[in-house]
Computed example of a mutant assay.
Amino acid sequence: MRKEEKHEIVQSLTEQIKEYGNFYITDTADLTVAKINAIRRKFFENGISLQVAKNSLIRKALEAAGVEAPELDGVLKGSSTILFSSVANAPAKLIKELRKTGDKPILKGAYIDTAVFVGDKQLDALASLKSKEELVGEIIGLLQSPAKNVISGLQSGGNKLAGIVKTLQERG
């Protein structure tokens, strides 16, 4: 591989790391071409970008993107595939689904909004993470609940309230 090609790969990886903010490093070694293509298709259909790269180029891209995660140095060994997604838990959910039919891809590590997850044992924790949209929805629901209760109370007791106000006015 020429130096220019390596530079282009590092630049592309760096841009994706900055753009998505979330990435997973997996092991897809020893899979057949057909299996790899099926996995690529599944990831593409779910809006997840997949790229196979040399570990040294991934390290350079992490450094260039300003990612400080020394824990990931230990996982950058052997064959590495890097996955990018704007939804933090989407790759983990898809990996779990793919693992129902085989033992790969294996999660080596993940970087989610500055949090680092190392090892395949973290897959369940990553899959159960809530997306920003889900968290915002829950917060809005919690904030709306008390307001709905107040409005409901006022509407149901509207006649009583009017009577109380009228009585107070008559006394005053």
Results as ranks from 00 to 15, higher is better:
Asn37Arg: 09
Phe84Glu: 03
Lys96Tyr: 01
Lys96Pro: 04
Gln16Cys: 00
Leu94Tyr: 04
Gln144Leu: 14
Gly47Ile: 02
Gln122Trp: 06
Leu135Trp: 11
Ser80His: 10
Ala115Pro: 00
Val33Thr: 14
Ser145Ile: 04
Lys60Asn: 12
Asp124Ser: 15
Gly66Ser: 03
Lys3Thr: 09
Asp27Ser: 03
Glu4Trp: 00
Pro70Ile: 09
Glu71Phe: 02
Leu143Met: 14
Lys42Leu: 15
Ala90Phe: 06
Leu123Glu: 10
Thr101Tyr: 07
Ile9Leu: 15
Glu71Asn: 03
Phe117Val: 08
Val33Leu: 07
Glu15Thr: 12
Lys130Tyr: 06
Glu134Ala: 12
Val52Glu: 01
Ala162Tyr: 02
Ile164Asn: 09
Pro91Met: 13
Asp120Ser: 04
Leu98Gly: 07
Asn149Glu: 09
Gly153Ala: 14
Glu71Val: 05
Ser152Gly: 15
Glu63Ile: 07
Ile17Glu: 02
Gly141Ile: 10
Ile140Met: 11
Leu168Lys: 02
Ala127Asn: 10
Lys166Phe: 05
Ser145Phe: 13
Lys6Ala: 11
Lys166Arg: 08
Ala29Lys: 13
Leu57Asn: 09
Lys54Ser: 05
Lys96Leu: 10
Gly66Glu: 06
Leu107Tyr: 06
Arg171Asn: 11
Lys54His: 09
Lys60Pro: 01
Gly74Trp: 09
Ser131Ile: 04
Asn55Arg: 01
Gly47Asn: 13
Ser85Gln: 12
Glu97Lys: 15
Lys121Ser: 15
Ser145Asn: 12
Gly172Met: 09
Lys108Tyr: 07
Asp30Thr: 10
Tyr111Ala: 04
Leu62Ile: 00
Val87Glu: 14
Glu138Arg: 12
Phe43Arg: 06
Ile17Arg: 01
Gly141Asp: 11
Gln169Glu: 13
Ile112Cys: 02
Ile17Cys: 03
Ile48Asn: 00
Lys77Val: 12
Ser85Arg: 01
Ala162Asp: 07
Gly109Trp: 04
Ala88Met: 11
Tyr24Arg: 05
Arg171Cys: 01
Leu94Gln: 14
Glu134Thr: 07
Ser131Asp: 02
Gly158Pro: 04
Val165Pro: 02
Ser128Tyr: 11
Arg2Ile: 00
Ala127Thr: 10
Ile140Asn: 05
Glu4Asn: 09
Thr81Trp: 01
Leu168Tyr: 02
Ile39Thr: 15
Ala65Trp: 03
Leu50Gly: 04
